[in-house]
């Protein structure tokens, strides 16, 4: 929803809720995938990210209490793996990804969300939309900073991190 004019507060809430809900689902999926491929470190971080996004989703749900949110069909959201902002794309995960990669993925998502809300705040003429977008942008930026701090605990992956000594290819 980059460069989008928001019609009113319920629309911004509806779009934000969908964005957060999809992010929760995606982190849940990635955590499951990492558990299956025996990558517990990445799985643990994805599970933590899922929980954090659930908490944020609940906050936006509380803000939406009593409001009739519009239904917006999926094709009016421009999230795809090619752009890969705001909601992590399915292709973002790799079975050998490290905690550094995992947090980098989440940082990119938060940065995309922060930029989006900044744009909405800048472009709107509606005070209530501006105020809400400002709050969402501030929160996304703060979480992004926190994730960057957390990432410093982990070493930068070396070149060849994705080289598998026991690859799945059948080469006999």
């Amino acid at each position: 929803m980059t460069a989008l004019r928001i019609a009113n507060k319920p629309e911004l809430l509806a779009r934000t809720l969908t964005m957060l809900s999809e992010t929760v689902e995606r982190y849940d999926l990635f955590a499951d995938q990492m558990e299956v491929v025996n990558n517990p470190q990445a799985a643990e971080i994805f599970r933590w990210l899922e929980q954090k996004q659930r908490e944020r989703t609940q906050v936006v749900q509380d803000l939406s209490e009593g409001l009739a949110l519009p239904h917006i069909p999926p094709w009016d959201y421009h999230w795809d793996d090619a752009i890969n902002i705001e909601v992590p794309g399915h292709a973002s995960a790799h079975y050998m990804m490290t905690p550094y990669h995992t947090l980098t993925l989440a940082i990119d998502v938060e940065q995309g969300a922060a930029d989006l809300f900044d744009n909405i705040e800048r472009d709107t003429e509606l005070p209530e939309v501006r105020k809400l977008a400002h709050g969402f942008a501030r929160e996304a930026n703060a979480f992004c900073d926190y994730l960057k701090q957390k990432r410093e605990q982990y070493p930068l992956p070396q070149a060849g991190w994705d080289e598998d000594e026991d690859p799945p290819q059948f080469l006999e």
Partner: peptide, 8 residues
């Protein structure tokens, strides 16, 4: 790579 477009 475009799940929302594919849904349409």
């Amino acid at each position: 790579t475009d799940p929302n477009g594919a849904a349409k």
